[in-house]
Write a protein that binds this DNA or RNA. Structure first.
Lengths: 241, 241
DNA sequence: CGTAGAATTGATATATATCAAGCCTAGTGG
DNA sequence: CCACTAGGCTTGATATATATCAATTCTACG
């Protein structure tokens, strides 16, 4: 599970989903020359909002969160960074958000300036980055619906389903039985993502548990006996989803 | 104010902000060959969610809204499209959201397939599109904070400030006196954007009026005597903003 | 002038926040 | 090995912001 720090691109788990997904051998070799890995322990800050962003990179393993804080301390998570997701933005010097490791995290990094130069003459990278950015934009908009219009229960269900979907698309095996979700988020992190308080998150999770929609293994491990049932609880249009 | 439908790119008001912003003469000529204009009246649907998206394009004048609807009718706006904003996404065949003209709208359009081909060999366009998409992503994330954590009053203030900022950056003249905002949105449209009900929007606007933070001209025309005061009401960190 | 949609305003209901207490669980040190 | 602790979580009681329901009032338009 823990990738070695001298991982070759060819052996990389996110090879086919990250910014480098469309690169050929020669292009990979070029990236390989300048990439470097970084590791963070659960809880560590990866980027501070407002600081200079000296590097960009992809999440290789683990989960990180992006969040924004108002003066008075209110916090809103604006993104959940799963393996293959990209951190940082070309053409911007300071980070707009805090990025924090929710679990142990490994990043595959590039110094920002050289990466921007690569972008200019590797359309396979810039094209993939555009595609990923458009996907993120869709995800952000879906989340606007969650935050603006959904009930607490629907928000919890939406979070679980969206993570379940991402995990499922990773290990493509057709799951015959219960989906077991590893969600390394504290109730506090969930509340920050969902625009709720810890207490409301806790109550709704308990409630869904009591009703058998989900089952709680460990406090951070959730069992989904019937994904379709959970999807109904998201409030989304089932036909589209 | 109303652009002629045979507008030349060189005379176009959004020339320096839209996807074509970085194009040189030769590139513009190429776009000019395939572009076409469309006009919509206030209230008209421009795109239906789920339908095939046969074209992409830029807002030349007017305001449009992007929104998403749940089965049970709950609506959330996920974007406000002002002049120079781009509609549609290369590499996707069906529209994920409804797009509606809030005022009379003129679009500068391209058929999707040819546009995608252009993208491939005009890095000035694809690069600019990436940049615009990253900006939209930031805007969507800022809105997640609004929807997840801000009070009704702060939401109203945030909407007004964000539109005021966009307008101000258009006519760059240093405003010496009151900012006059033309906001062609019904209370319903605002409530859909803000994740509130019409009644709450109305009450908060009245309240801000009573306190002199804003003044109401016409029902759709708002006067901002002191932008800094309004910014305080957004709850945002003033030092950053 | 009359009508319809938009907006305002008031009374009340309700979902979620807030305040508060106690309970797990993993890790620590005696 | 076993208290002991601290952080995370759960649960309960109450407060509150916003939704909901309902009645007017505006405004534009035929």
């Amino acid at each position: 599970m823990t990738p070695r720090l001298d991982l070759r691109c060819a052996d990389c788990g996110i090879r086919h989903r990250a910014v480098c997904a469309r690169c050929d051998e020669a292009e990979l070799a070029r990236l390989e020359e300048v990439k470097f890995y970084r590791r963070y322990e659960a809880g560590q800050k990866i980027v501070w909002a407002g600081d200079e962003l000296s590097f960009v990179g992809s999440v290789v393993s683990g989960i990180a969160t992006m969040s924004q804080t108002l003066e008075d301390g209110r916090v809103q998570m604006v993104g959940l960074l799963l393996p293959s997701d990209f951190i940082g933005r070309p053409g911007r010097e300071t980070a707009p958000y805090d990025v924090t490791a929710a679990s142990d995290v490994t990043l595959c990094c590039f110094r920002r300036a050289p990466f921007e130069r690569l972008l200019a003459d590797m359309p396979h990278v810039s094209g993939r980055l555009l595609e990923m950015t458009l996907d993120e934009l869709d995800a952000a908009r879906e989340w606007m619906m969650v935050l603006g219009r959904k009930t607490a229960r629907e928000r919890i269900a939406s979070l679980l389903v969206s993570v379940a979907r991402r995990e499922a698309s990773f290990d493509l095996m057709p799951r015959t039985h219960d989906l077991r979700l590893d969600l390394p988020l504290t109730r506090e992190a969930m509340s920050e993502y969902l625009g709720l308080t810890i207490e409301t998150v806790s109550r709704q999770i308990s409630q869904l548990g009591r009703e058998g929609v989900i089952a709680l293994d460990d406090r951070r491990r959730i069992l989904i006996p019937d994904l379709d049932r959970l999807i109904v609880e998201t409030g989304d249009d089932v036909t589209v989803a």
